[in-house]
Design a protein around this nucleic acid. Structure first.
Lengths: 337, 337
DNA sequence: ATGAAAGCGCTAACAG
DNA sequence: CTGTTAGCGCTTTCAT
């Protein structure tokens, strides 16, 4: 394995010049630049991250905190992050924060303190103040995707706005009895999302002069199967069921559509359904939804972070756009037809 | 940030002793051990990975190569890997191998050569010989999940056995016209899986004295939507359609079930469907399937790797178990009832 | 069992 | 613009 000295020798310059030429820090003559590049390529030289990191304090690696990986949103954000980081020559180190308190603690007291990362991205993890403090103590840039996180610049969609828009869409079609499938206590901890989506839903109803009917609001864990189950409950009674349903995620919306079908209902004739995400499966089910682009969120988070790493600007919160995608799962209610 | 010197001072020993006490390499008296532990805890000392890596050549980090993240199998394997690595005090660094040739090349010519990892796990990536060579040149343990990879110890399910078992299940129920939804050229590159599953299917038919009917075999990209589309095609003609269908993945099987429903067919009355995976959604659809446990595969891969890292044994291929999970999507064919 | 000291391979003053 | 050199914070001989 060739070292910087070898490159210096072959290029006929000093190691300092090699370092400068390859890192782009400090000025190097065109000829030296060229010679170094040539020698490095010839020898297949790649800088040792340990040595470089030790000497410079920069690792070209960022840590990503996620609660789960096997989930459309997280996996997508992760893909966006890792792709973008790789483009910039950065590595991505993954820290999965499980429910296990011990493990979680170790991440903050050990793993992240090893000085292996230049910065940290927290994806939808509800950090407590101690944890935020531990991260701040690292004195490394930190951004959150899907906050808000107290004291941390975050990037996130407007959850309230999203569900308000979804609900307004249903209202504008003429629906008055609009059900809601949100999260439950458990998901609210990790996602921080469900309660905001509920708020937007209620707000939209309120603005339209429609009273919130608690009986039409149920909770699930953001998975299709659980949403299927609760939707079946909700839609089971023909007398009391809603004419439209908003789900806080597309997977839950799809669960609801399947439940409706199994109850002999037709979507959207007997029930309009709208979701949130624009999930890969949304199109197949003709699902009307509010799109959020997790890939882009991941990429944006990286962009923010890099700016902060380079000292160009102290990262500050951004809001990510969303938009309504109308497909065939929503229509005017039967009785208004 | 406390350094090893601080710990040595507080503990009243030399830095060498601190290093030994904390790493478990070399012998240390109980009293020194105790003093060091105490001092380290008090100071919140955590070893610098750069410094330690530079001096020892060990990084306590492993690189994971994946083609995609946003997919049930990969995300699950990744979860298993990262969890298990974390248990062992190792970090997980993610390298996503996209279709982009340039990026992909950079991973092998740059990223992996930075000496940031002690070992590499390749998850279902079809490495060419140059890439395998590049990895071997690293002289770091390497294991593959979902091979086979020429010259690389891998961990994988028996794809042929799996699809043979699935097909046999259908045959044993009395089916003779059994369709197959496999992969296409594109997925075959990444997954390496489709063709093997096709082979097992054909083998099973052959063993039962049933001729393979090309018209009953279609390909998709392992996603639900595309399987839905091709299944609809396949099942559209009542005269020629099969009585049972085996799909090379659960997501595709579910797509097929939905297609059948939309064609007015009842599963399993008019069509039996079996998949492969035991995906999170399988139960909800009552899907009979062959289970493979990606989490376990990830964990096993880590176990193999650690043994190799510790020089306990040169990793060699393992085979992962699978089992038939019978639910309600398969039954005897109508005409045999 | 322990300490002194020589690196590990690079970066960043500093001097020129 | 370039070279010399002193570390970066650890690990690991080598003595003792």
């Amino acid at each position: 394995m060739a070292g910087i000295k070898d490159v210096a020798q072959v290029a006929g310059v000093s190691v300092a010049t090699v370092s400068r030429a390859l890192s782009g820090r400090g000025s190097v003559s065109a000829s030296a630049q060229e010679a170094v590049q040539r020698a490095a390529a010839e020898l297949g030289y790649v800088v040792s991250s340990s040595a470089s990191g030790l000497a410079s304090g920069r690792t070209r690696n960022v840590g990503v905190l996620v609660p789960v990986i096997n989930h459309w949103f997280y996996a997508s954000v992760l893909e966006g992050i890792s792709r973008r980081l790789m483009d910039e020559g950065y590595d991505t180190t993954l820290y999965q924060l499980t429910k296990d308190r011990g493990q979680r603690e170790k991440v903050f007291s050990d793993f992240l303190l090893r000085q292996r990362v230049d910065a940290v991205i927290a994806v939808n993890v509800e950090l407590n103040s101690e944890e935020v403090q531990a991260l701040h103590a690292l004195d490394k840039p930190l951004v959150g995707v899907g906050g808000p996180l107290p004291g941390v610049p975050t990037l996130h969609v407007d959850d309230e706005g999203i569900s308000a828009l979804a609900t307004e869409h249903l209202i504008s079609l003429g629906h008055r009895r609009i059900g809601f499938i949100g999260g439950n206590e458990e998901t609210d901890v990790d996602f921080r999302v469900p309660s905001h989506r509920r708020t937007g839903y209620e707000q939209a109803l309120h603005d339209a002069g429609i009273a919130v009917d608690e009986n039409l609001c149920v909770g699930a864990d953001f998975t299709m199967p659980q949403a299927y189950a609760v939707a079946k409950q909700l839609l089971g009674n023909p007398a009391s069921r809603p004419t439209a349903l908003m789900a806080a995620s597309d997977e839950m919306a799809i669960g609801a559509i399947l439940a409706a079908r199994d109850l002999g209902m037709q979507v959207p004739r007997d029930l309009s359904v709208i979701g949130v995400d624009n999930h890969d499966l949304a199109e197949m089910f003709g699902l009307t939804t509010i799109e959020q682009r997790p890939h882009e969120q991941g990429e944006l988070a990286v962009a923010m972070l890099l700016r902060a790493i380079r000292g160009e600007e102290p990262a500050h919160a951004h809001k990510v756009d969303h938009r309504l995608v109308v497909r065939s799962s929503t229509s005017r209610p039967l009785d208004a037809a």
